[in-house]
Design a protein around this nucleic acid. Structure first.
Lengths: 356, 356
DNA sequence: CGCCGTTGGTTAATCGTTTAAATAGTCGAT
DNA sequence: ATCGACTATTTAAACGATTAACCAACGGCG
């Protein structure tokens, strides 16, 4: 049923070695023979048995992609772009949803890598340094971190190596500065921040960057209130409650949600709380989607250059696989950077609530 | 570096055969030996080399998932659910975006299957019967069609077999009836339909089912106007133009878009045309998303039971792989069926435009 | 003529598992 | 003691591709 190398060899009247070499374009095979072999091969519809090849060469031509959940629109777009970029580079993608769960994430990277199911893994890490990742780093495994940098705690052997895994992301500092300026100019002085989990580096990093930007723009630190979510939509919704009725001073007049689905949750939360956006409270999201413009109100959000990110990730992976620098030191900051796309969800704070 | 079966055998003081048998739970191995082997195996962190296993058993433990584009929210959700269901069944998923392009789709099914990269393919077919699919069907390949049934033109050998591939979907008739009733009751008598490509069976099927429902509800056939899209967002937007200024009678007072992203496009198109939804024109989409409720207005749409669909698809695949009926005749209609989720995008037609 | 280099190809070993077939050991019955 | 009939384990043969090592044929050259 299946046509094997041997069948092609038989049909072309040469040895299997010749077929293999010819198909891989080895110059030791004469042009005529090569041509004949190729012709026969695709007349028979020959495709090399992936397993056999993988056994022999210890490489599979596929990459693992481990994300929180493809249903998250940011990941969906990312997955699409990565698959396309990978296909162009001759790789296929095996998709894994870890549901933002560290244990599941670990299990996926371990089993994909250890079982030689893939040549490498592109990982959008969900959590801080877990045992599995630590091991992967220590073993100099083929992992590229995407979008979220990973914490390197301590300075043991394992950590040093883990740090060596390439990290691909893009800088939000400019977009944060724009956001801060926008909010300040509109008159906001109290802003709520829905951050990613603060146990993770990315959580603290985004928070700190945003806080820095707000401060630089002139919004006093004691005007900002931070609550952490877990990247999921629900956590965004819950966070709104926390932001709104936490004891102490008056509630924020603007909220920025620092992770895709959390912004959607926030919008639902705000609506549930009976607050009108942007008349009574402004909202900025992170990770854009084309249909945000159809929201009520159209959601202002910080967009990541997804295609560029995806391209850089697979490029980085390919390089890593072809013996690139295992000790790649600095995160690769992809250009173009994140950018703020202004839509309708930001407006001046209500007069009664605005101080000064 | 990598720990092989032999390493485990050595460490446990038995032969490789014993290890293999023990790990697969073969009762011919004594309980004590088995226990020892298992213990050693996971102390060493042994994972079988996927390629080697695949070579020997001619099965890979992975399934191909070929869709139009994961960035399409319906596919994104589907992909997530399928990956989870597959994981539960012990399969991993290799993801392929064919960008709603028939040639690319063909290429993916051919290369995945012929190269034994996957055991089977779950396919949301993008087009009518293509040569590649015809061959796949003829060769009794491991393919399950999902969501969109496939046209079986002619009655040659190839077609008969292709028809044998299982088809998993869910019936929209109830939801269509509800839609028709809703529109009728609101007073609509002229409705525009944005259909999938009419060269495809799914396109004609959805159109005909909807038209039937509209007629049954009392909306005369000459009141409905159909224009086809290609499932992509842009085509929905363009379709609106076609629906609106096509010569002849007055424009529709309601539009139903029969495919995910096309509804979003339609909404953009309507807005671009300066029409207010639902005051001036009503809109119903197909394929729901949780954030449709945040749209302006909240988009009424027909939801497919995605998780059920995904579950049925992998179940069907597993059954097929374990020697199920290759001649599986009828499409498997998944329960629960599609259902109409009413939100704010439908209202009575404007009085001036409403006839009678 | 004999030797060498080159060109174009083949032989055979190998990758890590699985599994049919062979083998050793044990026990009971004769 | 001998012969099955088990049981637990091992031996060895695949699976299909890649590739190092080998070889034949042919010219050119001293």
């Amino acid at each position: 049923m299946a046509v094997r190398l041997r069948d092609v060899a038989l049909a072309a009247g040469v040895s299997t070695a010749t077929v293999s070499l010819a198909l891989s374009g080895n110059p030791r095979i004469s042009a005529e023979t090569a041509a004949r072999v190729v012709e026969v091969a695709d007349r028979l519809g020959y495709r090399p048995h992936a397993g056999a090849r993988s056994l022999r060469t210890d490489s599979t031509g596929s990459l693992g992609l481990v994300v929180g959940d493809v249903a998250n629109p940011f990941f969906a777009e990312l997955a699409g772009e990565i698959q396309r970029a990978a296909a162009r580079a001759g790789f296929s993608i095996v998709l894994c949803n870890c549901d933002e769960d560290a244990a599941r994430q670990d299990e996926y990277v371990r089993s994909l890598l250890a079982g030689r199911q893939v040549d490498g893994i592109i990982l959008v890490p969900t959590a801080a340094l877990t045992p599995g990742l630590r091991m992967a780093g220590a073993a100099r495994e083929r992992v590229v971190f995407l979008d979220r940098p990973l914490e390197v705690a301590g300075d043991g052997e394992a950590e040093r190596h883990l740090a060596g895994c390439p990290v691909v992301r893009c800088s939000p500092v400019r977009a944060f500065a724009d956001t801060a300026a926008l909010l300040y100019d509109l008159g906001h002085r109290r802003v709520g921040v829905i951050a990613p989990p603060l146990e993770t580096l990315i959580g603290r990093e985004r928070r700190d960057m945003l806080l820095g930007a707000l401060a630089a723009a002139g919004i006093a630190a004691d005007g900002v209130r931070v609550v952490a979510g877990d990247f999921r939509q629900d956590s965004g919704q819950r966070a709104i409650a926390g932001l709104l009725d936490a004891g102490g001073g008056p509630p924020p007049t603007a909220v920025v949600a620092l992770g895709g689905p959390m912004a959607i949750g926030a919008m639902k939360g705000l609506r549930a709380a009976g607050l009108r956006v942007p008349a009574e409270i402004s909202l900025v999201g992170f990770d854009d989607a084309p249909w945000f413009e159809l929201f009520d109100p159209p959601l202002t959000a910080i967009a990541q250059p997804v295609a560029a990110l995806a391209g850089a990730a697979v490029r980085s992976m390919v390089e890593l696989l072809s013996g690139g620098p295992a000790e790649a030191a600095e995160p690769i900051d992809v250009r173009p950077a994140c950018r703020l796309v202004r839509r309708g969800s930001c407006a001046p704070p209500p007069v009664v609530a605005a101080d000064r």
